[in-house]
Amino acid sequence: MAATSEQIRRVKVRPNYDHVAWKWMRYSALLLIPLVWIHVILQDVIVGVHAMDLDYVAQRWANIGWRIYDALLLGFAMAHGMNGVRQVANDFIKGDRARSIMSWALFVFWLAITVIGAAALIGGVRQDIPLN
């Protein structure tokens, strides 16, 4: 009767990268709701793009709190979004080698964009270059 035993077999599986990424998508999502929604409602709906110029950004970044806010947004939204692109690409690309190349390409792309965003956040608005 052992063959029909109802004992549940528990197996411990070491979490691999995709498992961690799957959890990451869900935890980062919770943080992204306030971060992205407040940013979009403030910038796009309340302030509006018609009120924006260099002074506007300079004034906002004069406040270190908003710089930290933007840094969090940069880090979490880009990481969540690029990992999402990786998930979608996994549905189109089969084979370990092709997937590994795709993952690395996305990683390099993510790094490049993040460095550009971070440079602006640290450097701030450049006032010393003449505008015309």
């Binding site: 793009v49 924006m52 110029d53 260099l54 950004v57 300079a58 940069l74 939204a77 880009m78 979004g81 690029m82 999402g84 692109v85 979608v88 964009i113 993040t114 550009i116 965003g117 440079a119 602006a120 450097g123 701030g124 608005v125 450049r126 006032q127 270059i129 505008l131 015309n132």
Partner: peptide, 29 residues
């Protein structure tokens, strides 16, 4: 999701123009 990342990538670069090329930022706005 894909639409938002596409926007985000462009957006990070266009905001970075305030540091990299302020004149270009005004054109983008």
């Amino acid at each position: 999701g894909l639409g938002t990342v596409l926007f985000l990538v462009i957006h990070i670069v266009d905001i970075a123009l305030v540091y990299l090329a302020p004149k270009g930022f005004l054109d983008v706005i």
